[in-house]
Design a protein around this nucleic acid. Structure first.
Lengths: 192, 192
DNA sequence: GGACGTTACCGGACCACGGTCCGCTTCCAC
DNA sequence: GTGGAAGCGGACCGTGGTCCGGTAACGTCC
């Protein structure tokens, strides 16, 4: 919620909002993959340079669009009720319960925004592992797996099965239900 | 080894060979990512159209370059000695042993050719899951997991952890040793 | 063996896209 | 009002990928 230090100029803030709205509308209308950055810039009445300076690249734009929902999920994990969050003193969920809840909630989020998340993860090579969100999920899962020999490595393993690319392909092959079950199976298998 | 049915024209065969050689040389020299399709075409003394018609896209070119080594591994799996292959009657390896051997052998192959495999999997969205090789690995792993509730889904899970993109990022974060261990851990965890 | 029609194949001009660059404009603090 | 910096926009670049008029290889028929 910090707004003070860098101080954003008025026209900049206005443009950011206009761009995000235009992008959201175009994505809804034509599908994420069919919309070019040129088109977004044109629809927003803004130069292409502006667009790239503010969002870095196409993945950055996707991240910005997902930001709100992503933060909601992250806050539920950090401060929300059990089993997804830590809960209030007294109803402490087990790590297994929390991991299950995380996988289920993350898949809800992912499947609801698959094309956008996919774009945020694949627009540039290695994008997925650079964005802040990945580090957040990884940290959270690592903590829940802290009884294992190498929690960080196992957390990467779990998250590999939640990659947009993988979930998209597996869903096409097996359907959503089996993919969800498989992810929960994995979570189980990794809890000793 | 079939050569008869489609009958490839002489110049076509010569061009294919020239292109593959040129590509291999350029990749060795400058690294896979730094070499454009234009450069390959020019180095091979061939038009760009030729290149794309024969290999489809950049991923196809990578697949062609990997073809030999990939086939070696596949044949070892199908017909080779235990524990990677089925072995001769009498020394039947358990599925667990075979799965371990597969993961180890696949990681050898993958890490030896990471940039090329990465290109073959990410050049176009969803490429990884379309190429024949993926279906082969998936089928093999499914068979080894046939005691599980949903072998196909679990096979996808295992292969997600062997995706070039994931292994590349995880290796950068944790180092090769821990990534290898994590993959074997996963194989273990999925064997009931 | 040589001319011929068919057809697979070739090559490079062409396109759309993501991304960069830099001279000009606009905003803001003083 | 003014100086300077943050921001703007669109021309520009290199890339992966497509298209199509031309070319050369091959089977065939004399």
């Amino acid at each position: 919620m910090r707004t003070s230090p860098p101080k954003e100029r008025a026209d900049a803030a206005r443009n950011r909002a206009v761009v995000l709205e235009a992008a959201a509308a175009l994505f809804r209308e034509h599908g994420v993959d069919a919309v070019s950055m040129d088109a977004i810039a044109a629809a927003a009445g803004v130069g292409k340079g502006t667009l790239f300076r503010r969002f870095g690249d196409k993945a950055g734009l996707a991240v910005a669009l997902l930001d709100e929902q992503e933060r909601t999920l992250q806050e539920a994990i950090l401060f929300g009720p059990a089993p997804l969050g830590p809960g209030k003193p007294g109803d402490d969920p087990t790590p297994r319960e929390r991991l299950h809840a995380f996988v289920a909630a993350y898949l809800d989020y992912l499947l609801a925004h698959l094309p956008l998340v996919h774009m945020s993860e694949t627009a540039s090579p290695g994008a997925r592992y650079r964005i802040a969100a990945y580090r957040f999920w990884h940290r959270h899962v690592s903590l829940l797996l802290s009884d294992r020999d190498d929690p960080q490595a196992d957390a990467h393993t779990l998250l590999a099965a939640l990659a947009a690319e993988h979930v998209q392909a597996a869903t096409g092959d097996l359907g959503e239900t089996r993919v969800r079950r498989a992810a929960l199976t994995l979570a189980n298998a990794l809890m000793l």
